[in-house]
Amino acid sequence: PKDQAKKEIEKALRNGDEEKAKRLAKKYGISDDDWKELKKRVS
């Protein structure tokens, strides 16, 4: 599910692991808009 994916990506971003977050986003098909939203929430 997308919500689970977003949680994992957000966690990776919080850990400062943007490479992992990007890989997860690609793997789960997270859209650019969702990606920006996640980045905003974390920063």
Rank of each mutant, 00 (worst) to 15 (best):
K26S: 09
S43W: 15
L38A: 02
G29D: 09
E18G: 04
K7Y: 09
G16S: 04
D33Q: 10
V42Y: 09
A21E: 00
E10P: 00
Q4K: 11
G16N: 08
G16K: 06
K7A: 13
E10W: 08
K2D: 14
D32F: 09
K20N: 10
L24W: 03
K22L: 15
R41W: 12
D17H: 11
K11H: 13
D3C: 09
R41K: 15
V42R: 01
E19N: 10
E19S: 08
K6N: 08
R14A: 06
V42A: 10
R41P: 05
K39S: 05
I9R: 00
G16E: 03
A5Q: 14
R23G: 09
K6C: 08
S43A: 14
K39M: 11
L38S: 02
E19Q: 11
E10C: 07
E19G: 08
D3L: 10
S31R: 03
E37S: 04
D33C: 03
K20T: 12
N15C: 06
G29Y: 05
A5F: 13
K7E: 12
D34K: 02
S31Y: 02
K36D: 15
P1E: 12
V42I: 10
A5V: 11
K22M: 13
G29P: 01
K39Y: 10
K36T: 10
L13E: 00
E10N: 03
K40E: 15
E8H: 07
V42E: 03
K36G: 05
A21K: 00
D33E: 14
R41M: 15
K36V: 09
L13A: 01
D3K: 08
E37P: 01
K27P: 01
L38I: 15
I9F: 01
E18V: 07
R14P: 00
N15F: 09
R23S: 11
K11G: 08
G16L: 04
K26A: 10
D3Y: 09
A21Q: 01
Q4N: 11
K7M: 13
S31C: 03
A21V: 02
K20C: 07
G16I: 02
K26Q: 11
P1G: 13
G16M: 05
K40D: 15
V42H: 07
D34G: 03
G29S: 07
K20L: 14
K40V: 06
K22C: 06
E37T: 04
D3W: 11
D17E: 13
K7C: 09
N15P: 00
I9P: 00
Q4Y: 12
D34T: 06
G29M: 09
D33K: 10
E18P: 04
D3G: 09
A5L: 10
K39G: 02
K27R: 09
D32E: 13
Y28G: 02
K27I: 12
W35K: 01
D32I: 06
R23M: 14
G29T: 04
K6H: 14
E8A: 10
K27H: 11
E8N: 06
R41D: 09
P1V: 12
L38G: 01
A12W: 12
R23E: 12
K26N: 09
A12L: 15
P1Q: 12
G29L: 07
E10D: 03
A5K: 08
R23H: 11
K20D: 08
K36L: 15
K36W: 14
D33I: 06
K20I: 08
W35L: 15
V42D: 02
G29F: 07
K22V: 11
R14K: 07
A25W: 03
S43H: 14
R14Y: 05
Q4L: 12
K39Q: 09
D34N: 03
L13V: 02
R41S: 15
Y28H: 08
K20H: 14
D32W: 13
V42C: 07
K27F: 13
E18I: 08
S43P: 12
K11L: 13
R41L: 15
Y28V: 03
P1K: 12
A12R: 02
E18Y: 07
L13W: 02
D33S: 10
A21L: 01
E8V: 07
R14M: 06
I30K: 00
N15D: 14
W35S: 01
D34M: 05
S31V: 03
R23D: 12
K7G: 08
E19M: 09
D3H: 11
L38K: 01
E18T: 06
S31Q: 04
K36Q: 14
R41E: 14
D33H: 10
I30P: 00
D33P: 04
N15Q: 14
I9W: 01
S43E: 15
A5E: 14
R23Y: 13
G29Q: 11
K11C: 12
P1T: 12
K7V: 12
E19D: 10
D32R: 07
A21C: 00
A21N: 00
K36H: 12
K36P: 01
N15R: 11
A25T: 03
G16V: 02
P1S: 14
E8T: 05
Y28C: 03
A25P: 00
N15K: 10
G29N: 11
E8K: 07
K2N: 14
S31G: 06
Y28S: 03
K20E: 14
K27D: 09
A25Q: 06
P1D: 14
E37Y: 03
Q4G: 10
K22Q: 10
Y28A: 06
Y28M: 04
P1R: 10
A5P: 07
K36N: 14
K7S: 10
K20V: 09
E8W: 11
K20G: 13
I30L: 14
D32T: 05
K36S: 07
L24C: 02
L24V: 04
D32H: 08
R41Y: 13
I30E: 00
E19H: 08
S43N: 15
A12V: 07
K36E: 15
A12M: 11
K7P: 03
R41I: 15
A12H: 10
Y28T: 02
K11V: 13
A12C: 05
L24N: 01
K40L: 11
R23P: 00
I9A: 02
K6Y: 15
L38M: 10
E19T: 09
K11P: 00
K36Y: 12
